[in-house]
Design a binder for these strands. Structure first.
Length: 773
DNA sequence: TGGGTCGTATTTTTT
DNA sequence: ATACGACCCA
């Protein structure tokens, strides 16, 4: 082993060498936190600590894997193998496989992802005969998630009048009933949702002291990365496990806390010194990642936040280039600019694709960017979004597999019992569910004795046969699972159920891609089995694979061809770094998000998010915003983000401010040649006023008034000319009178005053209008 | 029972 | 615009 400690600076080295007792490392952005964690673990092992006794909790599977690789490189792969390193959810799922039976769960419990949870919730709301428009499944689940993350059980909820009053005030007085029904239903299905994995871990550690003692003894050294993003439930688990030896090292940066919406409690990091009186605190303030310009700009932004620990991130790196801020005319223009700048960077700086990232606030923004990159034949990869495992065809096959492992998994059963179609309709399913409820057993158990119940349930003989066939098929799979490996069984299931056959018949591009996805899933099962067989502690079982499926995200899957531009949300980019970073969509109501403008705390989280985004960049950062954007199916005007105004102009290079003004006289798409550097630069007159209310900051592109526009009259399908004062009828808004038209031929926006709906601006390309007069 | 059409929400971020 | 769920009809 090398003298790895020599590669660290003073505070880094101190953090790596302080192995005993509670330690908090406040690691500013780019300050070499992963390096410290890696060397700290290596150092522990070097000192003679058994890797078996080290628990390292990271925020993503990806971070865990990367760190494990780096540790392997320092101490050797065989030593690193027995380290427990992973996300809270995956580590504690693993522990619960052993311990959950104590709480009445099967050891092969299913993990419900958010889709499953929502489906369960919809059924619960339906069964309680509640209005689904008031009790929105997603919202209700979010509320329940809050309860669970704060260890408020159903009983605790019902003993807490404040909570019940709050829900009643929010027009949801039945929240408690829903909570109970949801929990019951998951329990009956032998399933845990994401929050349960933490909640039940807490429960088992609290109720069974011998279990707690076992893991305290095992995990003598605990490291937690991204501590600022732990929620209360995670905090309690760490506290309980560490309370015996107190060899707890937490690493985090309050300025990068971006998961409050998910229950992350920034107070966990702010009050670490209160929890552990003899805690050492080591700040890492030197940034090794970014240029002075980027660090300076980021510091200015984050300084606007009130809630933060004192710290001073600095860098000895070069000044670097000023940060271009491009004002786009539309989302398409923004995307084109980004693509052209990437091209430029590759030409002048010789950057490779994988050194470039494009970051956005919402997944929906990737679409326009993708289009522009494709046009320039730039290879890219989109992280996140609808992940592989959430695709319908994948969930279908996985549901069969889940059902093999846990027959009580009602979500899985209901998903596949009539898919592919085998003549078992909703009526039959309802009967089965009612029977299961009355008999206090699961639907699967009803099916096992269907002939016994059929008459009582009024299910006719033909349907009984179909149900029987389904059960026989499932049983045959189960038998096969005992003697064959997981890949063979999965392949057999996919064929026998006709899932594959059905997709083969579909020769649309979507159908083909679905089939490919199924193939990819089967491949990944095979890969998983082979990989696990190689490991000492490997688990090549089906339940092992399914756990992986439930807890892994898209970002965790490796791509063979790595030389691609990365597209992802800012959240996903946390912990990563790139030589060049584009942050797009810097507009009010988008970044910061419209949903987070209500309180100072919410806005500060958005600001931290921007801070995270900016500090991903090593050498080149580009910022863009657009004066208009396609959102919710229509063009929306937007203002530049307030975060841009918080950065001193000395760091920024404003671009394209004059284009698209009336003087250009050309509406949208001014730049025909993508040559942004030739656009004459106009001096900006003054720094934009804080709290802009006026549009004086940067004028919006004005649409040119037009006298008339051709549209297809929905009344008779004929082309007619639309002009001011015409009377039209719209499906949704009813009768109205055209006030004015603006834009350019082929892209005209009409202002129409509707009798009942008021004044609306409609794009004639999309609006369906009947012309009356 | 199954397939089709219609209407509505969707765009905040994730384990 | 799109995708999903609800509803209706054959």
């Amino acid at each position: 082993m090398k003298n790895y400690l020599d590669e660290l600076n003073e505070p880094q080295r101190l953090a790596a060498e302080t192995t005993e007792g509670p330690l908090m490392v406040i690691a500013g952005a780019g300050s070499g936190k992963t390096r410290v964690l890696t060397y700290r673990i290596a150092h522990l092992i070097e000192k003679g600590v058994d890797p078996f006794n080290i628990l390292s909790l990271t925020f993503t599977n990806k971070a865990a894997r990367e760190m494990k690789e780096r540790i392997s490189a320092v101490i050797g792969a065989s030593e690193a193998k027995s380290l427990w390193m992973g996300t809270f959810h995956s580590i504690f799922a693993r522990i619960l496989r052993v311990e959950a039976t104590k709480l009445g769960y099967p050891s092969d419990f299913t993990i419900y992802d958010s889709q499953d949870a929502q489906s369960v919730m919809r059924k619960v709301i339906d069964e309680l005969q509640l209005d689904k428009d008031i009790y929105k499944a997603k919202q209700v689940l979010h509320r329940i998630s809050q309860f669970k993350n704060n260890l408020i059980t159903v009983r605790a909820y019902q003993n807490t009048p404040e909570l019940m009053e709050a829900d009643a005030a929010a027009m949801k007085p039945r929240m408690g009933d829903i909570y109970r029904a949801y929990v019951d239903r998951c329990f009956k299905s032998g399933a845990m949702d994401f929050d349960d994995l933490l909640l039940r871990t807490n429960e088992v550690l609290t109720r069974f002291p011998e279990v707690l003692a076992k893991y305290q003894e095992r995990f003598k050294y605990i490291l937690v990365d991204e501590y600022q993003d732990t929620n209360h439930s995670q905090y309690l688990i760490v506290k309980a496990l560490a309370s015996r030896y107190e060899n707890l090292c937490v690493v985090g940066d309050d300025a990068q806390s971006i998961y409050a919406f998910r229950g992350a409690n920034i107070r966990n990091i702010l009050s670490f010194q209160k929890d552990y009186a003899d805690a050492k605190v080591i700040p890492l303030e030197q940034n090794y990642r970014s240029t002075k310009t980027i660090v300076g700009a980021a510091n200015q932004v984050i300084a606007q936040n009130r809630d933060q620990l004192e710290k001073n991130v600095w860098t000895a790196n070069e000044d670097g280039e000023t940060i271009p801020v491009y004002r786009a005319l539309s989302d398409a223009d923004e995307a084109r600019y980004v693509a052209s700048q990437i091209f430029e960077l590759q030409m002048t700086q010789h950057l490779k694709n994988d050194q470039i990232a494009i970051l956005y606030r919402t997944n929906a923004q990737s679409r326009a960017i993708e289009e522009a990159l494709r046009k320039r034949s730039l290879p890219y990869r989109v992280f996140g979004g609808t992940s592989f495992y959430q695709r319908k065809e994948i969930k279908d096959l996985v549901a069969y597999l889940r059902l093999l492992i846990n027959q009580n998994d009602e979500e899985a059963l209901l998903r596949v019992i009539n898919y592919p179609v085998r003549g078992i309709g909703q009526t039959t399913i309802n009967k089965l569910m009612i029977a299961a409820d009355e008999l206090q057993i699961t639907v699967f158990q009803v099916l096992e004795n269907i002939r016994q119940y059929a008459a009582k349930l009024g299910i006719n003989a033909g349907t009984v046969n179909k149900l029987d066939e389904f059960m026989t098929m499932m049983k045959s799979f189960q038998v096969m699972l005992k003697s064959h490996d997981v890949y063979e069984v999965s392949m057999h299931v996919a064929k026998t159920t006709k899932l594959i056959g059905m997709l083969k018949e579909d020769d649309t591009p979507e159908g083909i891609s679905r089939l490919e996805n199924i193939q990819e899933l089967l491949n990944s099962i095979q890969g998983y089995v082979e990989e696990q067989k190689q490991l000492d502690e490997g688990d090549p079982s089906l339940s092992g694979f399914l756990e992986n499926v439930a807890l892994s995200t898209d970002a965790d899957n490796e791509d063979d061809d790595k030389n691609k531009i990365s597209l992802m949300t800012v959240h996903l980019a946390k912990g990563l770094e790139f030589p060049a970073v584009f942050i797009v969509g810097l507009e009010e109501n988008l970044f910061p998000s419209m949903m987070n403008l209500n309180t100072r705390q919410e806005l500060e989280e958005e600001r931290r998010l921007f801070y995270v985004a900016l500090t991903r960049a090593e050498k080149f950062a580009h910022l863009t915003y657009s004066v208009s954007r396609f959102r919710w199916g229509k063009i929306t005007d937007s203002e530049p983000s307030r975060f841009l105004e918080e950065i001193d102009d000395k760091y920024l290079d404003w671009k394209n401010l004059n284009v698209g003004l009336p003087i250009n006289n050309s509406g949208l798409n001014t730049n025909l040649f993508d040559d942004y550097n030739d656009i004459p630069k106009f001096e900006r007159k003054e720094k934009p006023a804080k709290n802009t209310e006026t549009s004086s900051f940067i004028p919006k592109a004005k649409m040119k008034p037009v006298a008339e526009a051709k549209i297809t009259n929905q009344a008779n399908g004929e082309a007619v000319n639309l002009a001011a004062d015409k009377i039209v009828v719209h499906d949704r808004f009813g009768r109205g009178k055209v006030i004015s038209l603006e834009g350019e031929p082929g892209n005209v926006k009409a202002t129409i005053l509707f009798d009942n709906a008021g004044e609306k601006k409609l794009l004639l390309n999309f609006a369906k209008l009947k012309v009356i007069v």
